[in-house]
Amino acid sequence: MKVLVTGASGNVGSYVVKELLNQGEKVVAAGTNIEKLKKLFGEQVDAVTFDFTDKTTYNEALKGVDRVFLMRPPHLGKPEDLYPFIDLMKAYNIRLVSFLSLMGVENNTIPPHYKIEKYIEKTGLPYAHIRPGFFMQNISGIHSVEIREKNEIFVPAGNSKTSFIDAADIGLAVATLLHDPEKYINTAHTITGAEALDYYEVAEILSKVTKRKITYKKPGYLKYRSYYIKNRGLEKEYVNVTVALYFMTRMGTAKKVTNTLFELTGRKPKTFENFVRDNIDCFVSRK
């Protein structure tokens, strides 16, 4: 049987596919852009068109599948958008679904991840939630624009600390869970990097590696929200979710450091400094 990976071309999904293939699994890579999937993975996977908002894509994605990596697309802010697909997974007798959740979400009902976790459990689907800390790729991705163009980190995290984790490490952890579904049935795993950093420390590391002075601006929630909607042109629902996540961060939910990645995989998490060095091109001006 095969493993379905939703969001297969994304930050985490692409690593899940890679690690599953390394473990000898047959993979169905799903996403809205099938040409992108074929370009990424070639003939190594079965590439299928899949969209949570289009129920006609569900059955083809689940054909011959017995395990699923489930990821909520960032632009879908309502947990209910995933419920029809979760219901259908139950009908297909999926042996394990690993949902990409969020660290600390078990104690916080605000993010959509909380309701999605609970809905999966309510259906009776066998699950192995993965609850990572903030992705290092958030810094090299969405927030890299201000770093490149303004030498600034523009996030409303206050003085809070975050145990950033590389998406590659998350992908390995997910693949480990899905490769051994009986062992990890009905479990939840909080995985983090090896250290908790505040954004002043993040700026120091970026400054050291890029040899430029990077400053943490520490905006308020409203200023951040307005900037990302009006100046960056991002969807309101997406920005609202990020505001909720940074609110949680200020409450101390992102600073926890666990040894779970090593316990699951035998691999120690990548440090943030090594991540910046490996992805230096993301932080260099493209003018």
Score class of each variant (00 low, 15 high):
residue 129 H to A: 10
residue 233 G to P: 05
residue 250 R to C: 06
residue 108 N to R: 13
residue 13 G to K: 01
residue 96 L to A: 11
residue 130 I to G: 07
residue 66 D to A: 07
residue 266 G to V: 09
residue 117 E to N: 15
residue 241 V to Y: 14
residue 246 Y to F: 15
residue 220 G to P: 06
residue 106 E to A: 14
residue 276 V to Y: 01
residue 104 G to K: 09
residue 128 A to D: 08
residue 234 L to D: 06
residue 149 E to Y: 03
residue 59 N to P: 07
residue 26 K to W: 08
residue 227 Y to V: 07
residue 80 E to D: 13
residue 265 T to G: 08
residue 7 G to I: 02
residue 40 L to W: 06
residue 105 V to W: 05
residue 123 T to Q: 10
residue 192 T to E: 04
residue 218 K to R: 15
residue 165 I to K: 01
residue 131 R to G: 06
residue 120 I to H: 00
residue 282 C to N: 13
residue 107 N to G: 15
residue 276 V to K: 01
residue 42 G to F: 06
residue 69 F to S: 05
residue 110 I to Q: 05
residue 38 K to Y: 00
residue 280 I to P: 01
residue 125 L to M: 04
residue 94 I to H: 04
residue 51 D to S: 14
residue 89 M to A: 07
residue 217 K to I: 10
residue 61 A to D: 04
residue 78 K to H: 15
residue 165 I to W: 02
residue 262 F to Y: 15
residue 172 L to F: 00
residue 201 E to Q: 15
residue 123 T to G: 04
residue 194 A to M: 10
residue 20 L to D: 09
residue 39 K to G: 13
residue 228 Y to Q: 13
residue 265 T to V: 04
residue 41 F to S: 03
residue 63 K to Q: 14
residue 204 E to T: 03
residue 7 G to M: 02
residue 203 A to N: 03
residue 99 F to H: 12
residue 116 I to Y: 03
residue 64 G to V: 03
residue 24 G to N: 08
residue 252 G to H: 08
residue 210 T to D: 02
residue 193 G to I: 07
residue 168 A to I: 14
residue 1 M to A: 14
residue 36 K to P: 09
residue 256 K to Q: 09
residue 183 K to R: 12
residue 130 I to R: 07
residue 22 N to C: 10
residue 247 F to Y: 12
residue 72 R to Q: 13
residue 245 L to F: 11
residue 149 E to I: 02
residue 10 G to N: 02
residue 13 G to N: 08
residue 93 N to Y: 01
residue 261 L to W: 02
residue 252 G to Y: 11
residue 84 P to A: 06
residue 157 A to C: 13
residue 187 T to A: 00
residue 155 V to G: 07
residue 265 T to H: 05
residue 177 L to P: 00
residue 57 T to G: 05
residue 259 N to C: 10
residue 193 G to R: 05
residue 223 K to W: 04
residue 244 A to P: 08
residue 151 N to Q: 10
residue 228 Y to L: 12
residue 127 Y to S: 07
residue 57 T to Q: 05
residue 147 I to R: 01
residue 182 E to H: 12
residue 25 E to V: 08
